[in-house]
Design a binder for these strands. Structure first.
Lengths: 327, 327
DNA sequence: TTGTACGCGTTATCAT
DNA sequence: ATGATAACGCGTACAA
């Protein structure tokens, strides 16, 4: 910046102003500075700027996995909004480990991020303490947690799961099976199972342990779950796959075996993969506001960062049931 | 840090050393500092550190789209390696626009990133100038570009496409159609078409314009391409879908219509989605080293950043053909 | 409208 | 092994 100031024959302070608040500088000087910037090839140093002003334009995002395509539309939503507001996005993934999350939080706070977006809603005590002390605004968006650190933007996994189960019951299915990812690792899965059980009770359907399964993620896993349930003596007439790509694996297994869906068994999924609408048959599923979660998370965070708002925020975004011919 | 120094009864310089180079500090002082850090809840300020040392531990990644799941395993690979080496990842997406790329590069250079990873290999002149002046190491990894800015880690889109086309020819297919994403927007697609044409020539097969199609991305698009080709008078016996999820859409359309694959027409894909192996029938495809590209990109970049190497690097990662029953 | 002086929190450098 | 001092490049606060 010194070089620019010299070239434009002004002080560095004037250069700084000309760049950040052009209105405060006379048009002629503004022009000289602009030319000098171009001539010198000046690229401002945000590190110095942030250090000096103790304001940063970087937001940190921490999620369990980057590879999981479910999260990518949320990231896209965040990225879109941040870019529009001239903020940068820093990403870390935890591989579903709370220790790794703590490390990532520590690293981001060391970078003096202006705000944090966390997918998980359970954190190590040390992580919570660090965040509290730092005072950075935080958005959690994995599920509508009842006791957020700060702000939440999400949908209710429990309600969504309940709604889909009720939908199946209303369609006349009586022996509704439920497949989720392992409950131990994942509060979202626990929420979903709670919703399933609540819906059974509301519908006066008996809960049958032979109809409830936990499976690891993956297509093969969905196919295996299908076979176990159909041949397991529980005699399901519908299966609700509340996780990942399980439902896709199951439908493809039906295609492979020539089992009609829903003739042999009805199948419902939990997430709005495009693919579900193109399978044969197209699969009934929940449409979750993944992109919107990203957008709104970034928006409420920016509101706080820029001081436009001090409110505690809890945004409950809507889901929808997409009824298709698999049920 | 001042607080820590006071609590530990040492100078800030000693605290700094105790944290970054513990060997240079006596065990007793080291312990006092560690206790003080815990007591104060000290979180170092990397902004100040980087400003002072003019060294950063942030790497910038710029890609066309975050939402495209193809890129997510590359990001995962980068993230894995960076975390192991205590570096942070900043991400921006360009929406396939060179201007947006330039803006992202400018923003990252302003953040004084230690290195850049770019997916695209064509850049605006201003972007190239900025990068050159800044002197930051750069890895490009979209395709094996012949004139890289600095380092490249990728595979050859042209060779991969050529190999698959030759594979089809060797299997006895004579009227091999080729579907790609729009060529104008995408050098990768152009490389792939070049490979296809080269393979036709090597196999002494005639290039027929009725057998070459450009389609937008998406499942529906793949289905449409299938129909256009099959009913378009070009009479293809095999279709090579060299982009995105096009092949998946086509296979599902075949299922829908009851067309046997490869009886009616053979289908080959370009990328290693898990799903391709689970479709009915499983689809022949290329296995591309997406994760490895991420890992190696991060590794060569870190080698440069840490000064372990000054070499110009061009890593050509291998692809594989996975032969399945769709061909 | 423009400039001066100082501080942000850390590391490099040179001393002790 | 430890400390004192001066940067790093910018923004804040105030003065001119």
């Amino acid at each position: 910046m010194r070089d620019v100031a010299r070239a434009a024959q002004v002080s560095t302070m004037t250069v700084s102003r000309a760049l950040k608040d052009p209105a405060k500088v006379s048009p002629e000087v503004r022009k000289r500075v602009a030319e000098a910037v171009a001539a010198v090839g000046y690229v401002p140093n945000k590190l110095a700027g942030s250090l000096s002003s103790s304001r940063s334009n970087v937001v940190g995002l921490i999620m369990p996995s980057i590879e999981n395509s479910l999260f990518s539309s949320t990231i896209q939503g965040i990225s879109d909004v941040l870019r529009r507001h001239d903020h940068q996005l820093m990403i870390a993934d935890t591989g579903y480990s709370a220790e790794a999350e703590e490390a990532a939080i520590r690293a981001f706070l060391a970078q003096r991020v202006a705000g944090l977006i966390l997918h998980d809603t359970t954190h190590s005590p040390a992580a919570v303490a660090m965040i509290r002390r730092s005072g950075v605004p935080v958005v959690e968006n994995g599920t509508l947690t009842p006791e957020p650190l700060d702000m939440v933007v999400s949908y209710s996994n429990e309600d969504a799961s309940r709604a889909m189960t009720l939908h199946l019951a209303r369609l006349g299915y009586r022996r509704i099976a439920f497949v989720s990812l392992p409950l131990a690792a994942n509060e979202r899965s626990r929420d979903r199972r709670r919703g399933y059980l609540a819906a059974l009770e509301e519908s006066r359907l008996a809960a049958d342990p032979r109809l409830v399964l936990e499976m690891p993620p993956g297509l093969a896993s969905g196919a295996e779950a299908l076979l176990r349930l159909v041949e397991g003596g529980g005699d399901p007439d519908a299966i609700f796959f509340a996780g990942d790509v399980l439902a896709i694996g199951a439908v493809l297994e039906c295609t492979r075996r020539g089992w009609p869906v829903p003739g042999k068994v009805a199948i419902a999924a939990f997430d709005n993969f495009d693919l579900l609408g193109h399978l044969v048959p197209p699969v009934t599923t929940l449409k979750l506001p993944r992109l919107e979660i990203g957008r709104r998370s970034a928006e409420v965070l920016l509101d706080r960062i820029t001081g436009r708002s001090r409110a505690a925020v809890a945004v409950d975004l809507r889901f929808e049931i997409i009824h298709r011919s698999s049920t």
